[in-house]
Amino acid sequence: MTHDEHSSHHILPIRVYVTVFVLLMVLLVLTYVAALQNFGILNNVVALTIAVVKALLVILYFMHVRFSTRLTWIYAAAGFVWFLLLFIAFGDYWTRNLNVPAPKQWEPPITLTQPKISDSDHGH
């Protein structure tokens, strides 16, 4: 066995795992307690932050990413970064019914015979 030569063979002392587990339990309680409070618009932020911290603890310590090669880091991060790319779709939902009126001074150079673009038309 080549234990100490390689990072992923690195054996953590068991108290690291116990500490992480205790932290997770504290955060679990915190998750519930936080859900009962009202932070206004920060409600979701608080809930998700706690979840992210919990996930990070699991990923970094239980899944040993913290002690892994750079390659593992990259792949572990890539999944979550790409997951966020999906949320580009929200650009659509937030602006789908948005109407920006044309500048007031602007006049068409020629008189259009067709009906002008009305407010109900979102430009699809």
Binding site: Y32, A35, N38, N43, N44, A47, L48, I50, A51
Partner: peptide, 10 residues
């Protein structure tokens, strides 16, 4: 868990 069970009421 928080996304389904603990949706903030406010």
């Amino acid at each position: 868990f928080p996304l389904f069970y603990l949706i903030p009421l406010h």
